[in-house]
């Protein structure tokens, strides 16, 4: 069974149809890159998979391990193993990062019928994960993303990915707002989490990110559809020729 199957997905926001019948199949261990120009529907796809309110699915379905994802609340999806790394992680003043992570991890464990982690158990776990990703401990004491640089915010997303151990990670424009050094650090974090069981969907506007996170498959989106799929070379081809050819094709 595939891990994630998006079938003929049609999505509208108010009166505009954004996705016009999108199909995508992701198996365990695979890394898929979704590329496309601004407005092609890349972020909408990531939001609909994660369950963000405000989108109306008019047709098609999304299955996660064969279950209907669209019937689930966002927190149920998270507990089942769907993780969205946000393009713009929000700042939450007054909630420390470590309290947030502890609450979230225990909420997911509870939903799966697993035991709750006590504060010392959690601390031990989160410290080990932070260390493996070279994330300084004092970041955990600060308010969630409050005063974080763009790079720190993305590292916090990767820290969560490592901590929650999801089955599928959707990385929404992870490269936006990052300089080349920050990008490399973030990509190293993602690569460390690649495994035969875990799949990744890397959404990006630029080919640059894919030099660091090398995909197995590349899909080009335009005007709410996948217009071309191929191997990692497709990204290089796009870098040379641009998206214009596909806009005409769509």
């Amino acid at each position: 069974m595939s891990l994630l199957e998006v079938k003929n997905l049609k999505v509208r926001v108010e009166d505009n149809e954004i996705l016009h019948g999108l199909t995508l199949t992701v198996n365990p261990g695979e890394v898929h890159a979704i590329m496309g120009p601004n407005g092609s529907g890349k972020s909408t796809l990531s939001h609909v998979i994660a369950g963000k309110p405000g989108y109306e699915v008019t047709d098609g379905q999304i299955l996660f391990r064969g279950e209907d994802l669209l019937e689930m609340e966002p927190d149920e999806r998270a507990a089942k193993g769907v993780f969205l790394a946000f393009q713009y992680p929000v700042e939450i003043p007054g909630v420390t990062t470590w309290n947030f992570l502890h609450t979230a991890l225990n909420a997911q464990r509870k939903a799966r019928g697993e035991s709750q982690l006590t504060s010392p158990e959690f601390l031990k776990k989160v410290r080990a994960v932070a260390k493996s990703l070279n994330i300084p401990q004092d970041m955990l004491k600060r308010g969630v993303n409050v005063g974080f640089s763009g790079g720190e915010k993305k590292r916090n997303e990767i820290l969560q990915m490592a901590l929650f151990e999801p089955a599928v990670c959707i990385l929404d424009e992870m490269d936006s707002g990052l300089d080349i050094d920050a990008l490399r650090i973030a990509a190293d974090g993602v690569n460390a989490l690649r495994s035969p069981e875990r799949a990744m969907v890397v959404i990006t506007h630029y080919q640059r990110l894919l030099n660091y996170i090398v995909p197995d498959f590349v899909h080009v989106m335009s005007k709410g559809r996948v217009v071309k799929s191929g191997g990692k070379d497709l990204a290089l081809e796009l870098e040379a020729s641009g998206y214009t050819q596909f806009e005409d094709a769509a």
């Binding site: 994660a50 369950g51 963000k52 309110p53 609340e73 966002p74 927190d75 999806r77 998270a78 507990a79 969205l84 946000f86 992680p89 929000v90 939450i92 003043p93 007054g94 909630v95 309290n99 947030f100 609450t103 979230a104 991890l105 909420a107 997911q108 939903a111 969560q160 929650f164």
Partner: peptide, 22 residues
């Protein structure tokens, strides 16, 4: 903020509670 917390596994009430506490 609510959606961010829910996407991390908190139920609606839990997400609200955390933001109210803050």
């Amino acid at each position: 903020l609510l959606f961010y917390l829910r996407a991390r596994g908190l139920s609606e009430k839990e997400a609200q509670a955390l933001l109210i506490q803050a």
